[in-house]
């Protein structure tokens, strides 16, 4: 058995809204092994980004536990939390919004080192920044430029360098390539793969793009309106999706192949938002196989074959 790096147990994050309590993440549990990548997919409002941020405690959880290398991080004091942040990092979706426009590239990448007093000597620190820039493929000449002078791909490289600065063990990648053009997207995905191989990193890769997640992840977790509906290894999930939502989601990806005409499962209706949800399967209103059993009781996540979990009453 591989060693578990991260364990999420019954994680809940609710937000108060004017219409009621929004169950953004509702009782989600999973584990990630060291050196592996867990892909988290789902559509807008499914809680995937909230889950990622709550795991890093950028948002305070409503309840639940997250164990990182066996330590329950929700019980840590602010000081202890700051110390453990060195090991847990995040790469954001929007390379425009995630970089302070008033700081230069060098200042942004060097900031984690300054804040945590890792390299007090400014000259050595600068060298480390240059090293990091080289690792992520940023030319030395950009050290004193501002993010807005650079293109999206380079900005995302800055974000990656900043996350790498403290040599973390675990990185949450929150839609790191969604804002980028296809050819640049491939460059960034390759960079993330190379870094993982070289440094033995563990990733949670949050995305709505299923072809990217399949390429990138060992395991995939599918979320729908705050809940985990299916989790399996990538091969297994793409071969034998069990949950009706996963099936529809997979069939909805437009495939760039003109001979491959697949039957598309069209879903009824629209995504709701999980405000004061009633018990029962949240996918039921859009599901093509809905029965009376689906309403009233929330289906539990069952392991149907080793490593393949599904939350559906029909399975």
């Amino acid at each position: 058995m591989a060693e578990t790096l991260l364990e999420v147990k019954n994680l809940k994050k609710y937000f108060k809204t004017q219409k009621g309590l929004l169950h953004a993440v509702d009782d989600v549990s999973f584990t990630v092994d060291r050196g592996k990548t867990l892909g988290v997919v789902g559509e807008s409002g499914c809680g995937k980004s909230t889950a990622g941020r709550t795991i890093l405690r950028l948002l305070e959880p409503t309840s639940g536990q997250v164990f990182f290398e066996g330590k329950d991080i929700f019980s840590l004091s602010p000081q202890q939390m700051r110390a453990i942040r060195k090991d847990m990092q995040i790469i954001f979706q929007d390379p425009y919004a995630s970089l302070n426009p008033r700081k230069t590239v060098g200042e942004i990448i060097g900031m984690p080192l300054v804040l945590n007093k890792l390299i007090p000597d400014p000259r050595k620190r600068e060298q480390r920044v240059l090293e990091l820039m080289e690792t992520v493929g940023l030319a030395e000449r950009f050290i004193n430029t501002y993010p807005h002078e650079l293109d999206g791909g380079r900005r995302q490289r800055i974000g990656i360098a900043r996350a790498m600065a403290m040599e973390p063990k675990f990185i949450v990648c929150d839609e790191p390539v969604s804002a980028l053009d296809v050819s640049i997207q491939a460059q960034i995905l390759n960079l993330l793969t190379t870094l993982q191989k070289k440094l033995g990193l563990t990733y949670i890769f949050i995305t709505h793009d299923l072809s990217v997640v399949n390429y990138f992840s060992d395991d995939i977790a599918v979320m729908y309106l705050g809940q985990l509906v299916e989790k399996a290894s990538s091969e297994r999930l793409f071969e034998k999706p069990m949950h009706p939502y996963t099936q529809a989601l997979l069939s909805a990806i437009p495939v760039p192949d003109i001979d491959h005409k697949q039957e598309r499962i069209l879903l009824k209706g629209e995504l709701a938002s999980p405000i004061n949800p009633k018990p029962g399967c949240r996918f039921a209103p859009r599901c093509n196989y809905v029965t009376d059993k689906c309403i009233g009781k929330t289906p539990e996540l069952k392991e149907i074959t080793p490593g393949h979990f599904v939350a559906c009453t029909l399975v």
Partner: peptide
């Protein structure tokens, strides 16, 4: 904004 969140993530007070 995400850059404030990013600062929090790298341990800023």
């Amino acid at each position: 904004t995400e850059f404030v969140e990013a600062a929090k993530a790298i341990g800023a007070k």
